[in-house]
Structures are given as C-alpha cells and as structure tokens.
Simulated scan of single mutants.
Amino acid sequence: MYWFILIIAGVLEAGWLIGIEKSAAFSKIPYVIFAVLCMTSSLVLFGISLKQIPASHAYLVWLAVGVLSISVIKYYFFGQSISATQLLCFGLIVAGVVGLKLTA
C-alpha cells in the first residue's frame, strides 16, 4: 500500500512541475493553484510513504516516477518527442525502481 502511495506522490510531483511551467511565471492563477495543490498532496503522500519505506529508496522512487510522469504527460498532451535512447534510459529507471522495490 505504501508503495502505491509513493507512486501517486510521484505522479503528483509531475503535476506541480507542469503547473508551474504552464503558469507563465506565476501569472496564470489557475495553474498556480493546481501546482500548489499537487505539491502539497505530493509531499503529504511522500511523508506517509516514509512510514514503511526507507527514505533513500522512497526519494529515488518519488523522483523517478516524477520524471517518467512528466515525460509521458508532455508526450501525450504537449507533443514532446521521445527518442529511442530516452526510452532505453526510462527502461533503466524502471528497472532500478523495481530493483529497489524487490530489495526493500
């Protein structure tokens, strides 16, 4: 359950980063509100996950899920391309996260 919470926290991390990017230097208030809500939710869920997951593992997974989420969101919604090399690197990130899960 705590790993699922951590993954949701990572996806929300991507949400706040995209919200900040789309806020145009904090001039578009709806995006700022979205970013703050995602950031707060992400940190709360990350904190909850620390009850059962070592901080070093949780932090790496949180960042990895955030990076992957940002890339997927930008690919599907904003037309950002993803190269074969990037896909390979994403696969390595996923392999590392799975490895951490299996050893934690």
Rank of each mutant, 00 (worst) to 15 (best):
L37T: 09
P54V: 00
A14G: 08
W16A: 02
V32M: 08
G79E: 06
Y31T: 01
L6Q: 01
M1I: 08
I33W: 07
G10S: 04
L17Q: 05
W3T: 08
A25M: 12
V61L: 03
G47H: 05
A84W: 08
F78E: 11
M1K: 14
Q86P: 06
S42M: 07
V65A: 10
T103L: 10
L63N: 13
G66A: 13
V32D: 07
Q52D: 12
E21K: 15
V44I: 15
K101Q: 10
K101A: 05
I8P: 05
A14N: 05
L60P: 13
I20N: 01
S23W: 07
W3V: 09
L63D: 05
F4Y: 14
L6P: 03
K51V: 08
I29N: 05
G19V: 02
T85N: 10
I33N: 04
G19H: 06
F90D: 00
S81D: 12
I73F: 11
T85V: 12
I82Y: 03
A84V: 12
L45H: 06
F78N: 09
K101E: 03
I82W: 04
V97A: 01
P30A: 05
H57I: 10
P30D: 05
G15V: 00
I5S: 08
L87T: 07
I70S: 12
A24H: 13
K101L: 07
L60K: 08
S49M: 01
G47W: 04
F26Q: 07
I48C: 02
V61Y: 00
Y59L: 13
G96L: 00
Y31N: 10
Q86R: 15
